[in-house]
Design a binder for these strands. Sequence first.
RNA 1: GCCCCCAUCGUCUAGUGGCCCAGGACGAAGCCCUCUCAAGGCUUAAACAGGGGUUCGAGUCCCCUUGGGGGCACCA
Length: 494
Amino acid sequence: MTDRPVRVRFAPSPTGHLHIGGARTALFNYLFARKTGGQFILRIEDTDRKRFVPGAEQEIIEGLRWLGLEYDEGPDIGGPYRPYRQTERLEIYRQRAWELVERSAAYPCFCTPERLEKLRQEQMRNKQQARYDGLCRDLDPDVAARRVAQGERYVIRFKMPRHGVTIARDHLRGEIVTENQYLDDYVLLKSDGFPTYHLAAMVDDHEMKITHVFRGSEWLSTFPLHVQVVRAFGWEEPVWIHLSVFLKPSGKGKMSKRESAETLKDGYSIFVKDMKELGFIPEGVLNWISLMGWGVPEDDVMTLEKMIERFEIDSLTPSPAAINFQKLDHFNRAHIRRLSTEDLARRIKPYFLAHNLAVDDDQLLRVVPLLRERLVTLDDCLAFGAFFFSETVEPAPEELIPKGLSAQQAAQIARRVYAILEAVPDMEPVHTEPPLRAYVEESGFNVNQVFGLVRVAVTGQRVSPPLFESMAVIGREKVLERLKRAGDILESMS
RNA sequence: GCCCCCAUCGUCUAGUGGCCCAGGACGAAGCCCUCUCAAGGCUUAAACAGGGGUUCGAGUCCCCUUGGGGGCACCA
């Protein structure tokens, strides 16, 4: 059926933040489009006025842009099938709904919400499945038309076959057979004139010539309906691909609002908008979400290009996947490590600037190689390397004293190291390391004691990038200054 | 309650009837390297949910049970 050029779409509703589940749906759409040379479309499904969140559309667009998932048609860039916002297509849905009425595949329903609520209560009480009882289903079409003309409030319902079965085909699961008796006469057009998803999405997918529908498996339960609607119109069906859902890290259920908020405390998030601030890079996030619900044989650290190359809809998996933030860390770190020096420098510079550190670009370029393999998230650059750019460091006095030594011995080491480094032509490791190692030898202290002290003295911290390389970047003046200061502190303690 | 979907190491997964005493990755443990922290290298522990079939042969096909998930709206 897919001799048509591939056209796929990501169709979120602007009702909240763009989360990783949505991002992954967008990713798979994107990968498939790029893989096949087809088009990737962004469509905004904003027909629910009650849940509409102002700004949500913008957040979706920004999120996709940040991730690098460029679309070919969309509300902000237009395209041959515009508009791409459903509230701007209301007339189309209204006409299509009535087209179905004319084909006797749908009917106007005048039942009030109150009556439906009562009906539902009663069915629940009798432990029956809650569904429409079909009161308006067999109304005379002329009578119905007259009532509509008179301005009575109505919805349009789909006339679901009462008997037989509906066979729908999901690409990952095969045929899904549902007995029609369990299906309902779903509302297609609401009384406010807005369509429901069931109508709008089917109409748009058809009009926009969508060939493959990637969507969350929460749509599986209404899948038979959608297939029925498409068939009632006599349209060609797209290939349906229902993606697995994301479960919380424990694997028990989906993440709640509260749980989502709490992950932020641990430095993680399921919302794309938070990722940048948490120091994650698009490459890492993309790689992470791509591997939930997609089985790649080997070498799973991939760039977008690599993903496009390897993407196959047949290797998508239907089972739910638990979110694992440790993997986010892993992929983020792996991709940071792959960044060029210039690129990484550009990305971490803002973090230093935000902390009022004067960043010299040449110096930054020398810092990056020392930091690169130590960063899990971009903001780790501060914990690891703020001392490179700060005027002074504030070592904790007790940390200056190596294990097993007295303050006096420590002071002696600091003074001696100062003297050795002062005598050396520059701070390059070839000049600093040999004499200091020689000193370790003759002094009888061990490397950890001596280098540890120097590390705390010049970096202000116990953990840092390699000492000698770091000193070379810090520069002679600051190194000596900091060593002197450490010596002073230690002397005052002894 | 009813309907639908899913089911391999803790997690993400490979596996499409014999190549599997089940492979990779994350995480864990240990060793090596080492100026700290990382990175890197090597090694180890760790799974076919249970029960019935089908078959010469089942992780792979069928059924049941169990577990998990989703849905039962004039929300998407």
